[in-house]
Design a protein around this nucleic acid. Structure first.
Length: 899
RNA sequence: GCUUGGGUGGCGGAAUAGGUAGACGCACAGGACUUAAAAUCCUGUGUCCCUUGUGGACGUGCGGGUUCGAUUCCCGCCCUAAGCACCA
């Protein structure tokens, strides 16, 4: 191809270039990748979007990071899998159906079409053949398959329980989705509701979810693992059984009395127990209901009602409870203790019962104070082993929760807490009234949703056979076209007889289907496995293909999924491993949690509302420092804040607008350059303008040098007899900068730093600007240096501004096929060329910078010292002083210590 | 309260196996070009001081410490963000 035929525009027109390359990429199938054992793979994955209708800047940022990495790895020669899909089941579709009467399926498909077009306009390098959508039967068929597999393995079960209920979204929530006591989607405080629902036994993997963290801790953000650790909440302690007696029977009675099992992490404080406190829902209450007074029963009901109510975040609930009249025997001391109901004891954790040791536990202390229960100290700090209360009964004022030395504890007195814990647990085990135990905070994952827009749970209820799993060959159990959407929180499918009326897979008698659907987090637990084999009809995916591509090499997404999606998908992977589908434990090797995209908002106190940016005037002083902001119309003050983007605050930015005004490439560069990926990103219009300026500068350099000398650098190189004979200082300087830049950019990419390479590339472009030779007068050596700089710059820009890079590459090389298919690779730094031939060595006196000298790199220590001491300025400082010591760090500095 | 991050110019941020603090960008100021504006290009920009210099002092949240040398390591605080929160 002849360069002269290619007419380059005078100016950089982003849209034109972007459309051209998006078309060529599609035609050339540039980003399609297939499993190939001969090639080293790289799986770059970004969290799939919910098809809400519009992309937001958070998506742009997320996918720009992933795309940069995918491009970089392709240029490094990796076989790169970079797919995208749609998390298309979920509430907004159903909400649209309720409010606007639209069909959720149509609404979803329309949104997908719109958003796919937006992604394509941004030019992300996805393998579109692999696109998946959770709401399509060919996908959710396998959700159902997994459910049946889990049922077979005892990992799925149904039970009646108190579930988290969001009164606004009218749906149940898993514990993870109700974390912090609020709905993950809308932030409403959650209530409790009695409901029968299906659970997945994630607790079976609690221990492994903790231990396997060692496999990924190098590549995951520490805080995510910390949050998961905290969520799983492993706690080591012991169970102790307290035999229960009442006025009607005693422990000695022949008929064996019931007992209460208590979980404690401090078995060493057992002698300090003043009561057993159980949750209001504890089975012992039901068992002894007949013996309880009316007052007690009333209190229990009151506590249950209080518990079901939503609590404000951070709200302290006052301790409440009542003495049941039952008593229990402390198996260590033989002491008879009252059994209380306490509102602070949770049925779901441990065994739903605690022994109250007020002297050594804050909550028990508070409870004892309120109800005047005795407080007895049984552990003291080893230094002052004196017992504060002689009779062991007078109330003490402070709670001592640390380990110490036991007192008032029978034969265990005098032992350390550590020894006592171990020995008392052993004793309990030997005497068969207790044993060491581990409990977890993690609960099973409730997946039943009383919703239409989700995967139906493949269960049939038969009067004769009970809950019967659907047969595999009947999958998928398809959703009907539509259902009556009332929005009152009942399963819409329960009103569609064509759906629920069926026959029992077991006995063929008429039966009813389960009408709840699955939590959408089921879909997202394994979607990126499906990408590897997206058309497979018989299985979720073929193992050998998944085992080639997975685990994911780099996963990128928001930190908000730290204990939801990211915990579920780790669980799912372990189940898939146990089923024999995959051969690894952890699905994601490296996780990058990107920060939020935020915008500047303007709030007017006088108008008590947010103001659009164009109505605001920013006042600055001579140094550019913002002094204040005022409303243009009446000069009234405006409060400026950086907040999450939202329409009501007028601080949102629409990706389409950005593309239309500045181009996709500029938007992508800015989103990567403005802040490290983990940080919050403040979207500033002036910042993206800077990105455009940068691209325009590079465009002009390419334009200037390509028209005068349209020859490939390789051809030029062959003309230069001996590269070392390049005598031009300018050429040598530029080549040095080029190779230094390549080195820096490569190192930064390998460390997953995306902002600093842009700075390096800008420096290289500035070096080109400083290059004083014009194309007309340049020697071959100088032309070569420029060509090398431009080609390197363009290739290194490809991860950030792929359309732009492709266009420049075509101008420079004449290749119409595009960078990847022309076989271009990421440039490799030549260490020798990157080396400076003269470096500046700072000279310090007593650690303070006083002078600098220029010297050849690798100058010997002794010579550096001599040069430093000979320096005129240094002489001034050292004259009349005693030189105590001279520290010389070759290539770095010289420090002279004087007295 | 507990856990984990983070505090560097007017702003976003560079730089840590301890070695010239402030790269790059934004903003701002001055200049060139222009009838003018935009665009572009050039120059300057941490704070303070003076005798205006290849000048000095100070400076990476605060107070100590280690070191020839600390943004980086250690100890103790302060502030801030996120997560969890009666978990026995």
């Amino acid at each position: 191809m002849n360069i002269e035929l290619f007419i380059m525009d005078e100016k950089y027109f982003a849209l034109k270039i972007e459309q051209k390359w998006q078309r060529r990429w599609a035609e050339n199938r540039t980003f399609e990748a297939d499993a190939d054992e001969a090639k080293e793979k790289f799986y770059a994955l970004e969290m799939l979007p919910y098809p809400s209708g519009r992309l937001h800047m958070g998506h742009v940022r997320n996918y720009s990071i992933g795309d940069a990495l995918a491009w970089y790895k392709r240029l490094q020669g990796f076989n790169v899998l970079h797919p995208i899909g749609w998390d298309s089941f979920g509430q907004p579709a159903e909400q649209a159906a309720i409010k606007k009467g639209v069909n959720p399926r149509e609404w979803t498909e329309d949104n997908i079409n719109q958003m796919r077009a937006q992604l394509q306009k941004l030019g992300f390098s996805y393998d579109w053949r692999r696109e998946i959508a959770a709401h399509r039967p060919e996908y959710y068929k396998h959700d159902q398959w997994f459910f049946l597999k889990m049922l077979e393995r005892g990992l799925a079960y149904k039970k009646m329980t108190q579930v988290n209920w969001c009164p606004k979204d009218l749906t149940t929530l898993s514990n993870e989705q109700a974390s912090g006591g609020v709905c993950w989607r809308c932030g409403t405080a959650v209530e409790k509701k009695d409901l029968a629902q299906w659970f997945l036994r994630i607790t079976a993997y609690a221990e492994e979810l903790l231990t396997a963290m060692s496999e990924i801790e190098a590549g995951w953000a520490e805080r995510v693992l910390t949050m998961q650790k905290h969520w799983i909440g492993k706690s080591e302690g012991a169970f102790i059984e307290f035999k229960v007696q009442s006025s009607k029977f005693k422990v000695q009675d022949s008929e064996s009395p019931r007992s209460i099992k208590v979980f404690t992490t401090r078995i060493d404080t057992t002698y300090g127990a003043n009561a057993i406190v159980v949750a209001a829902e504890h089975p012992i209450i039901e068992a002894h209901k007949a013996e309880l007074s009316k007052e007690v029963l009333t209190k229990i009901e009151a506590i249950k009602i209080e518990k079901a109510k939503p609590t404000e975040y951070g709200e302290e609930v006052e301790k409440d409870g009542i003495d049941t009249g039952l008593t229990a025997i402390n198996p260590f001391s033989g002491e008879e203790l009252p059994v209380w109901i306490g509102n602070y004891v949770m049925l779901e954790y441990g065994s739903g019962a605690v022994m109250s040791v007020p002297a050594h536990d804050e909550r028990d202390f508070e409870f004892a104070k309120k109800f005047g229960l005795p407080i007895r100290e049984v552990v003291v700090r080893s230094s002052d082993s004196k017992v504060q209360s002689e009779d062991g009964k007078s109330p003490i004022e402070t709670v001592f929760t640390d380990y110490g030395v036991l007192v008032n504890s029978g034969e265990w007195s005098g032992k350390s807490s550590e020894d006592a814990k171990r020995e008392m647990a052993d004793f309990a085990k030997a005497e068969e009234f207790g044993e060491s135990a581990v409990t977890y905070r993690l609960r099973d994952w409730g997946i039943s949703r009383q919703r239409f827009w989700g995967a139906p749970i493949p269960i049939v209820y038969c009067e004769k056979c009970g809950a019967v799993p659907e047969k595999y060959e009947n999958l998928p159990i398809e959703l009907p076209e539509t259902a009556p959407f009332t929005g009152i929180g009942e399963s819409p499918l329960a009103k569609v007889p064509e759906f629920y009326e069926t026959t029992c897979p077991n006995c063929n008698e008429p039966a009813k289907r389960e009408t709840d659907t699955m939590d959408t987090f089921v879909d997202s637990s394994w979607y990126y496995f499906r990408y590897t084999d997206p058309k497979n009809e018989n299985a979720p995916f073929a193992s050998e293909i998944a085992n080639y591509w997975l685990p994911v090499d780099q996963y990128i997404g928001g930190v908000d999924h730290a204990v939801m999606h990211l915990l579920y998908t780790r669980f799912w992977t372990k189940v898939m491993r146990d089923i024999g589908l995959v051969n690894f434990d952890e699905p994601v090797k490296n996780l990058l949690t990107q920060g939020m995209v935020v915008g500047e908002s303007f709030y007017s106190e006088s108008k008590a509302s947010y103001i659009a940016p164009d109505e605001v005037e920013i006042k600055r002083d001579a140094k550019g420092k913002v002094t204040k902001a005022v409303l243009r119309s009446d000069e009234s003050p405006i409060r400026v804040a950086i907040e999450k983007m939202s329409k009501s605050k007028y601080n949102g930015v629409d990706p389409d607008d950005m593309i239309a005004i500045y181009g996709a490439d500029a938007a992508r560069i800015f989103s990567l350059f403005a802040a490290p990926a983990q940080n919050e990103l403040v979207w500033l219009e002036t910042g993206i303008e800077g990105a455009v300026r940068f691209l325009q500068r590079v465009y002009r350099f390419v334009c200037k040098w390509s028209q005068e000398s349209g020859v490939r650098s390789q051809d030029l190189e062959s003309k230069i007899e001996d590269l070392s004979a390049i005598t031009s200082d300018e050429a040598r300087k530029l080549r040095r900068k080029t190779h230094q830049t390549i080195k820096r950019v490569t190192e930064n990419f390998e460390n997953y730093q995306f902002n600093t390479p842009v700075a390096a590339l800008m420096e290289l472009s500035n070096a080109l600007g400083d290059f004083k030779i014009e194309p007309e007068t340049a020697t071959d050596a100088e032309k070569f240096a420029v060509r090398e700089a431009l080609e390197s710059l363009v290739l290194m820009l490809a991860p950030y501004a792929p359309h732009f890079a492709e266009e420049m590459w075509e101008v420079l090389t004449g290749s119409e096929k595009g960078i990847l298919q022309s076989g271009a690779a990421f440039p490799v730094a030549d260490e020798n060329l990157a080396k400076a031939d003269e470096i500046e060595i700072p000279i310090q006196i007593n650690g303070k910078l006083r002078s600098r000298i220029l010297t050849a790199p690798e100058t010997a220590k002794a010579e550096l010292e001599a040069l430093a001491l000979a320096d005129a300025k240094i002489k001034e400082y050292t004259s009349g002083k005693q030189i105590v010591k001279v520290v010389v760090v070759p290539n770095r500095l010289v420090n002279i210590v004087v007295k």
